[in-house]
Design a protein around this nucleic acid. Structure first.
Lengths: 215, 215
DNA sequence: GTAGAGTTAGCACGATCGGTCGTACTAAGT
DNA sequence: ACTTAGTACGACCGATCGTGCTAACTCTAC
């Protein structure tokens, strides 16, 4: 049935030039969304920012909803690249926990997105707006928390953390601290926020004492 | 000079009915802003929600900016009533810290604003939008953090907390946990979030052990 | 009770919103 | 080379945006 019209399961190949502009559009869209929000991201603004006509945009995305979903997907890619991969590359367990936090701080500080963390900025905005975009954002947050929890579990197994730590609680705390740091950093535009946030993380993970022991 | 046109320093009294509608408008505006954002809060929507014509709104607020500022002010009033006052009424020190967190959780859970905490929702939105509204939101956040810090300092003086706790760090952590709980609660719409958040707070403040000692 | 100021509605403006249509160019598959 | 389809454009749609202007209505002070 379904194999009839799709010979190679890829009946509609994309052109190379279209792929490039699509990337450029999504990159600009993700950046704009952290400033104007996913809802405030207007087709006109995005067209002006990219130098493409509105109807040109609609050749790539049939509706604003599709554009929003594709933008979230692009932001997921960036987050994976900027935060998740550096974390996974670190020493399993406590090292990954610390690396994840540090990568996040760096990702916010370097203004990878002008409005701070994409998901912090958009999750609260879409929280009260049910729909596929919110669902997707919720999934990303869940996955990130799950990642932190898995790191915590490994750290516990390796006795790098106090035995009466709860992975769920710790993941919740760390995630909250990352979000809080992002919020304050964006709001105050003050590097001191990150200094304090790093102190909190180090103390929470007991890295100050562990650092000389691991060397 | 200035006393010439102002006989009793209150030359423009407000009418009672106007004051009522103004309150009603601001109440609806604050609620709407937690869903649509302060920028997405449109005059037309607000007029429809309150049953007042758009031009009627403009008799109270000369511009959208003024409306936004007045809305933030209204939200400050609600926060003071719902969170700050219950906290201040508690036992000075650790009790106030716990009461502030609990009052915040309750304020979010009871959906005082449909989109969760007003300031969590709007601060991130306006973070990348410089202007008087952002400044005001930043001030509120600073004041709240300062409040938590003062509680922590008192608690330290009363030896209710470990001596090597830093009030700044603790205030930062607690504030972050409150924001994180709000974010996840709104995003997942799951009461379990608050259960976990309360556990984290209790553990962080060492309330589990202290509770039977204080009884 | 009359005056005047606070209050509200009606109407309309330019701009922008998300979205559609027809068209032209061009990179691929044959 | 010829066709096909992805790509991009300009013009345009109805709706809504924020914001004025004017004219009623109504409470309140004299």
């Amino acid at each position: 049935m379904t194999t009839e019209s799709a010979k190679h399961d890829r009946p509609r190949p994309r052109r190379a030039d279209g792929e490039r502009t699509r990337r450029a559009i999504l990159s600009a869209a993700a950046a704009l969304a952290t400033v104007d929000g996913l809802e405030g991201l207007s087709i006109g603004n995005l067209a002006t920012a990219t130098g493409i006509s509105k109807s040109g945009l609609y050749a790539h995305f049939g509706s604003k909803l599709e554009l929003q979903l594709a933008t979230v997907e692009e932001a997921e890619r960036v987050l994976a690249e900027e935060v998740v991969q550096p974390a996974l590359a670190a020493q399993p367990g406590l090292g990954q926990l610390a690396a994840a936090c540090e990568a996040f701080f760096s990702y916010v500080e370097r203004r990878v997105f002008p409005g701070g963390c994409f998901f912090a900025a958009t999750s609260l905005e879409m929280g009260a707006r049910p729909g596929p975009v919110k669902d997707r954002l919720a999934r990303v947050q869940s996955e990130f928390t799950a990642l932190l929890r898995s790191f915590a579990t490994t750290a516990l197994e390796q006795h790098e953390l106090s035995a009466h730590e709860d992975p769920d609680q710790l993941a919740f705390e760390l995630h909250a601290i990352l979000l809080g740091a992002d919020t304050k950093f964006v709001l105050y535009d003050d590097p001191a926020v990150m200094v304090l946030a790093r102190q909190v993380i180090h103390q929470r993970l007991g890295l100050d004492k562990a650092s000389d022991a691991s060397a």
